[in-house]
Amino acid sequence: MPHTIKRDSYFWLIALQSSCVTFFLGAFGPSQALLRADQNTSLTVAGLHGTSMGVAAILAGYANSHLVHKFGRSRTGWIGLAIFSFGVIIFVASKPVQLTILAALFAGFGVSVVINNFVTSLTAHYGKNAAYMVTKANAIGSVSFVLGTLTVGLIADSFREFWRIGILALLPFALYLFFFRRDKNEVEHIPSEEGPQGGKLSAHFWISLFGFFCSIATEFAISFWAAVLILDRTGASPAISTLVVVAFGSGMAIGRWFGPAILKNIEIDSQIKIYMSTQFVGFAVLWFSHNLTISFLALLVTGIGVSSQFTLTSLRLIGLSDGRPDLSMGKSSLAAGFAIGLSPFVLGLLGDNLGISRAYLMVPVLSLISLLVIQFIPSHVEQEVELQK
């Protein structure tokens, strides 16, 4: 008989920590065009901010299991949020491009540390109900993502020179979480005598990690270059780019909020296949469309398809890690870092040589690889049917 689970104070703390960093990620996209204009840099130089975020995710992947071993998941999450906040302050306050790229490295490192421990903390807290609750928490983060995009976009539209203030809006909220929502009576973490989680991982894990890489690569290829594809196909104004990110982010929020309830009786691997198929259909319509309205709707559907892939494929990897979730999330962060750094760059390089439309055929190829990995390497991650209070 299904039992009832609820969003307790721990759920809200972890979800809201994650929302701080997703607000920045939502603001980061539209801020690049504004920052490039302020700094008068080329597209290649401006793109180094995204590359810096990818490098940061790789560094966080190497550091994750060591930080968790020394400080515990809870304190590591706060350390990540502190480093992230430092990076955001430097990013907003700095004018030279060298400093903003460095700031993106600090902010990106903090983002990855927070997200890594977001997944493992909720997985440990909810056990077999993790897929449902982690995805629900991700939905809250998606709303924050859209708010970040809208905040910077609307401020820039009305008060061009003050757009950076929009990014700073997350800092008071981070301070509120630390001083008023943090559990001040938590049990002191004692590092394990066995050291950080380590050891060899199975071939199935590594193949599945490559599938995870392909999945993340499709998400960032779409989020970075979808605006260019729509401009190329429809001839719309460049000002549409912010709305494109909102459509994609809104689709992710919808998928993360309603998907778990709709698919709760379906095993995790099958859920991933449904999400990937939805992404494939939405992207196909987007690629063929020459109509702006249809393109927006297609991007919304694509966002729904992308929405829970990170969460569910991360849980797959944890299930294949032989009880080493922190090690698994560290490897996931490494793969995500390479995907974030390489995917938009390779797509842009192909776009310069083949045109953006042909270059975008890279996305369904990566999606197909991810789907085949899920098909031929089942994870057998258990999931209970649950109801929500």
Rank of each mutant, 00 (worst) to 15 (best):
F224W: 08
G235F: 07
A221N: 08
I254S: 09
K264N: 15
F258K: 09
N265C: 03
D269Q: 04
M252H: 01
W257I: 03
A253T: 07
L263F: 11
P260L: 03
I222P: 00
D232M: 06
L263I: 01
L243N: 15
V246R: 00
L229I: 08
S237K: 13
G249L: 01
W225Q: 13
L263R: 00
T242K: 15
L229Y: 07
G259V: 01
S223A: 12
A253Y: 04
W225R: 13
I268N: 02
G255P: 00
V244F: 02
I268Q: 13
M252Q: 04
L231V: 13
A247W: 05
S250P: 03
R233Q: 15
I262F: 10
A239Q: 15
I230K: 06
F258L: 11
L229A: 09
I230C: 05
A253G: 07
L243Y: 15
N265H: 09
S270E: 10
I240Y: 14
S223D: 08
A261H: 10
I254K: 07
A247V: 01
G259C: 02
A221M: 07
G255Q: 02
G235E: 10
I262W: 10
G255I: 00
V246W: 04
G259H: 03
R256K: 04
P260Y: 08
V244Q: 05
I230M: 12
A247T: 03
A236Y: 12
S223H: 06
R256H: 02
I230N: 09
K264Y: 07
I266E: 03
I240P: 15
K264C: 06
A261K: 11
A247Q: 02
S250N: 03
L231H: 14
F248R: 01
G251D: 08
A236Q: 13
I240V: 15
T234G: 11
L243H: 14
G259P: 00
M252V: 01
P238R: 12
W225G: 02
F248M: 05
K264H: 12
I254W: 06
P260N: 10
A236R: 14
L243S: 14
A227D: 13
A253C: 04
S241W: 07
G249E: 03
S241R: 03
A247H: 02
P238C: 08
A253V: 03
F248E: 01
S270D: 11
I268M: 14
I262S: 05
R256T: 01
D269R: 04
A261M: 06
R256E: 00
D269P: 05
A236P: 13
T234P: 13
P238S: 12
E267S: 15
G235T: 09
W257E: 02
